[in-house]
Design a protein around this nucleic acid. Structure first.
Lengths: 365, 365
DNA sequence: GTCAGGGTTTACAACGTTGCACACAACGTT
DNA sequence: AACGTTGTGTGCAACGTTGTAAACCCTGAC
């Protein structure tokens, strides 16, 4: 039922190949022929069969984005940016949810989508470095988001997690807080991928630089990065007698769970406890109180990742050297650290005082 | 470089077709042949080329889910459920963001993904009934989520929006509220797709049934369903002197914006104003205060939509009669309407008193 | 011992597209 | 007038897979 090149060719009285040439904008087609064919193409509503086209070319025009959870707004926002960037290359994005499961991450890397995608952008969560290396299929180029936990032939894009956590901690220290808890520690094991370790390191560095010693009692462990785990971690920490005057959360959903737990205990934010997260998801601008956060340049991360794939998929020989790019970030101070007054007029909820902190532009190679 | 049937065939000393038969589990293959071929398949790491396979079959094994915004947690959650359901059919889901733009919705319906997808599940936002009909391509089966705004050959899955809004309003009335505002009205125009109109109707029905007259002054208009529009709408409503003791929001993101606006004005929820939303997104369980909401059975919606596609794609003649299925819903009362005490112990944040309200199971046809 | 009938395997064509090599015409040059 | 050049159009093969139909081999029955 669908219209094929052959159908157009017959109607236009030319060969199939000529129609193909017109459709693909091949130069050596006489103007009148082109016009005639073009007219028939439109009249019949011809659409190229991507499947067949790609069988020849070996390219599908689809890239996959594998993230742990779309429900985490950070990944939803990131997905939006990736789609936008991919669009400019004429690519379609296929989003895969790994649910943070090692098995599904392995499947994806092992070429689960074989022949269905031309490239893969992946945000690993459960897989460790060795597993990543072991699973990799190497048939399509891969860009990993997050820490460089693997020496394999994949590009990396990430913010400097040590610096991001350090900047957030510095922000809290700058407000005079001295007992700064941490929520998001993940004792070695899987579900780590290095990010938690690095962020903890940044927290320690900032404390030590301020002459403070990191206290184990102020470290909140989590299994996962969802709101409920933030809630549970801070609750446990308080139950065992911890009395922080500030909390650094390793992402915003943890922080939102923390805000909720503090509210349930009648602790006032930021008067009693200041709270800051990382990711700067949309929700931070609307929570009560509005959540301060470290804002990674999500747009840049997405664009860089897509561009890297484009380069490896490009016609000119694929560059074999894996690259490692750092995206910029900035600390956005909102009510949960500086209070309503300092954070700006409540009726202008979107802004908040923006303290530019660090934003090293991506450095190729 | 990738392994083809031919490569396996040569190594195993059989014909290409035999390998194909083994891979596809065709019955009439001798046990020893099967074992030998299977061994080679595994040894060489053969993966079928989906593209080529689908060129023959005409099926791609991919369905598209088109939603306005992934950043809206409702759609992110829905996407998760759709992926899960699709997985059971061995399908991959391609998520498309239309950004709520009529143009992009038109593109999607017009077969933008021609030959790349076998079916489409779409949640229209900007397109009106006529436009939907005009754009449709009819080359792949379509399931529309949301109101039945179109008589074309598409299946529909939705909750009963009139009843859902009425149930929410009844909940507020049951708490003794008498001045119930509405946030989410969309004056005819596009960006409507009927949902807002129906929900408004439900609000009116509930009020009239309680002997109250709907007041125009308590209707908050929005352009869109994001948090900022909820914020703006309730602010405008209060600024022009409206003094509601409750607010029904047409979705949860609007409601979260409303909560934020009320907090900025020092109004206490639910003491001064009770607030309820629709969608029951995860975030409602963590906001301060926790947000009451009408919970549609998202899992059922997703499964039903996928099953409908499966039926139309199945081998047995495609049923030409478009079907219309209503999914169930229930009112979930949390702090924003019944207060912290009644909503349950704050340390058990996930539950909340669940008032089962209505849940008509889907009725085929 | 031949033949029917079943299980097993194979050759071939086709899905819709594009790369390649070539045919042909028109033109300008020698 | 013969030649090369350039521009335009076409036929054929191939991408990797599977449906169809037919070939093959074996068993059991007459």
């Amino acid at each position: 039922m669908p219209v094929r090149l052959k159908d157009v060719a017959e109607r236009a009285g030319v060969s199939v190949k000529t129609v193909s040439n017109v459709v693909n904008g091949y130069v050596h087609v006489a103007a009148d022929t082109r016009a005639r064919v073009q007219a028939v193409v439109e009249e019949m509503g011809y659409r190229p069969n991507v499947t067949a086209r790609n069988l020849r070319s070996g390219r599908v025009g689809v890239i996959a984005l594998a993230v742990p959870e779309l429900e985490n707004p950070y990944f939803a926002e990131l997905a939006g940016h990736v789609m936008e960037a991919a669009d400019e290359h004429g690519w379609t994005v296929l989003v895969d949810q790994t649910d943070g499961l090692a098995e599904r991450e392995r499947d994806v890397l092992a070429g689960f989508r074989h022949h269905l995608i031309d490239g893969l952008i992946m945000s690993p969560f459960a897989l460790t470095a060795e597993e990543l290396g072991a699973s990799a299929d190497h048939t399509v180029p891969v860009v990993l988001l997050g820490e460089k936990v693997w020496d394999g032939p994949a590009d990396h894009v990430a913010i400097d997690n040590v610096e991001a956590a350090r900047a957030a901690t510095d922000h809290l220290l700058g407000l005079g807080r001295r007992s700064i808890a941490l929520v998001g520690h993940q004792p070695d094991g899987p579900g780590d991928s290095g990010v938690a370790r690095l962020r903890r390191h940044g927290w320690e560095l900032a404390l030590r630089a301020a002459g403070l010693e990191p206290e184990e009692a102020l470290v909140g462990e989590v299994e996962d990065f969802g709101r409920e785990h933030g809630y549970a971690a801070i609750s446990a920490l308080l139950d065992r007698g911890g009395r922080p005057d500030a909390v650094l959360c390793f992402n915003d959903t943890l922080a939102l769970g923390v805000l909720r737990a503090l509210a349930d205990r009648g602790l006032e934010v930021p008067v009693d406890v200041a709270v800051i997260g990382i990711d700067d998801v949309e929700e931070t601008r609307w929570s009560v109180p509005r959540l301060s956060s470290v804002a990674p340049d999500k747009r840049a991360i997405a664009r860089t990742a897509v561009t890297m794939l484009a380069e490896r998929l490009g016609p000119d020989g694929r560059d074999p050297a894996p690259r490692d790019v750092r995206a910029g970030f900035e600390v956005v101070a909102r009510e949960s650290t500086v209070g309503a007054a300092a954070a700006g007029h409540p009726h202008v909820p979107v802004s908040g005082a923006r303290a530019r902190r660090s934003a090293r532009p991506g450095t190729g190679r």
